[in-house]
């Protein structure tokens, strides 16, 4: 399997002291990688550094072998990277339809952008019923659908998801995990999935990466993290 995302010696933070320390990562194309770790471990910082919102002080990120150093944030979506930020980032003042359209505005292929939009409405029926509702009128679950759908309108190759299960009922979380699996199997989507909900993340992930205090302390197959009690105890605390 070819490698889609590669991270080498990534060190990054917000002030003088770095939050991430020399993080290495490799995510093969068409797989789901779970990024796990306690609160404050640096998971969000990792995703934000991957998409250029935080500038690394050392190391680099390669997408499909191409270094992303110096690529502006707004160009990454052109390279196939989509980032659903922590808290989802639904634009509260815009309608559901406008939020979704925004996800595909950069695309030259207008016909396919419209097709992708229609597919999102098929995938998330509650959104189709609320096209004209403003973002702030949606429930938490609907917002998550909107954020995810908006990322999918871009037809990304790599999807960065920051805690999609946050505040959602277990049933909705399970649906989202099932959807990720389905997208991986059908379209070859690659996902970097940050989750607090370790069990549900590992239920769909192919590989797992555990962060502690900004360092990678374990990177292995998801099944090992799931089944190896010692590993689980040591790093995931259950």
């Amino acid at each position: 399997m070819s490698e889609l995302l590669r991270v080498e010696g990534l060190t990054a933070g917000y002030g003088a002291a770095p939050v991430l320390h020399e993080v290495d990562l490799s995510v093969p194309a068409g797989t789901i990688a779970a990024v796990l770790g306690a609160n404050g471990a640096g998971k969000t910082t990792l995703l934000r550094t991957l998409s250029g919102l935080v500038r690394p002080s050392a190391g680099r990120v390669l997408l499909d072998g191409r270094p992303l150093t110096g690529v502006p944030v707004e160009k990454l979506v052109h390279l196939g990277m989509a980032h659903v930020p922590e808290g989802r980032g639904v634009v509260a003042e815009l309608t559901v339809e406008e939020n979704l359209r925004l996800g595909g505005l950069w695309r030259r292929d207008r016909a396919d952008a419209n097709k992708a939009l229609a597919e999102v409405y098929e995938l998330f029926e509650p959104l189709a019923k609320r096209r004209r509702s403003a973002g702030h009128q949606l429930s938490g679950g609907e917002r998550q659908m909107l954020a995810l759908g908006r990322a999918l309108v871009a037809r990304p190759r790599l999807l960065l998801l920051d805690e999609p299960s946050l505040g959602l009922a277990p049933k909705v979380t399970a649906q989202i995990m099932a959807l990720l699996k389905q997208l991986r199997d059908r379209t070859g989507l690659t996902v970097l999935l940050v989750e607090q909900n370790v069990r549900s993340a590992l239920s769909v992930a192919d590989t797992g990466v555990v962060l502690a205090l900004g360092r990678v302390v374990a990177a292995t197959g998801a099944d090992r993290l799931r089944d190896d009690e010692e590993l689980r105890h040591a790093y995931l605390g259950f």
């Binding site: 052109h78 930020p85 980032g89 815009l94 359209r101 505005l105």
Partner: peptide, 17 residues
């Protein structure tokens, strides 16, 4: 739409291109 989004949510807008 881009202008409105950029004003309301600059960071998210950048992530969306």
């Amino acid at each position: 739409l881009r202008m409105r989004a950029a004003a309301f949510a600059p960071e998210v807008s950048r992530l969306l291109g």
